[in-house]
Simulated assay, not measured.
Amino acid sequence: MPKCELDAIDRRIVTELQTNARLSNIELASKIGLSPSPCLRRVRRLEQDGYIDGYRASLRRGRIGLGFSAFLGIKINGHANEQALTFEKTVVAMPEVVACHLVSGDVDYLLEIVVPELEDYQRFLVDKLLNLPIVREVRSSIAIQTLKAGAPLPLSHLASP
């Protein structure tokens, strides 16, 4: 397991920010029991050290017209070559792809894609993904209902014994 150097206060900061990244520094400081200046220094250090990757609004997909989600298992021809790297860069740049994982098992990559509806998925699949020469096979699973997505990361494993 990679070494994580977050003390108890840092863990409280990231826990609070995962729950509500719009907290002002004064509100955050109050919640974790620090004065604003040291709180802000800690947040900036967490950002600089790469613990905090960014801040973004979490949107309801259906409300913005992206009600169709699918998970795609992708098999490619070859892994350790320039084509595989090109595939990764191309897929990561596609706005419909909201997650991309290199995985072990029956497929090589697992993608999560969001589009407005089935016809848009068909266009994405045929016009974009299957046009990539390295793609050998695509297995699709369509989300019927999303029960949980974009949840805060669990941090209990970081607690001091």
Rank of each mutant, 00 (worst) to 15 (best):
K75P: 02
K89H: 13
T19C: 14
A84S: 14
L153W: 14
P152Y: 03
S140L: 10
F71V: 15
Y55L: 05
L17C: 00
A99T: 13
I26N: 00
L85F: 11
D7T: 06
D10G: 06
D120G: 07
Q83W: 13
R139T: 11
C39S: 08
I142Q: 13
Q18H: 03
R56D: 01
L147Q: 10
A70H: 01
P152F: 03
R56V: 04
L125N: 03
R42K: 15
Q145F: 10
G150S: 05
D53K: 15
A149Y: 11
E47Q: 10
S37K: 06
E82I: 07
L40E: 04
G62W: 03
A99S: 13
D127G: 12
L6C: 07
D49Q: 08
G67A: 07
G33H: 09
R56P: 09
C39Q: 02
P133E: 06
N25Y: 11
N25F: 13
D127E: 09
V98C: 01
P154D: 13
I144K: 15
E137L: 12
E119A: 10
K89N: 12
A84W: 08
I142N: 13
L66F: 09
L85E: 12
V92W: 11
S156E: 08
G67L: 02
S69N: 01
K3N: 13
G73L: 00
Y109D: 00
I134C: 00
Q122A: 10
N131G: 12
V115I: 08
Q122K: 15
S104D: 08
A151Y: 14
T90G: 04
L46F: 15
L72A: 03
P133I: 06
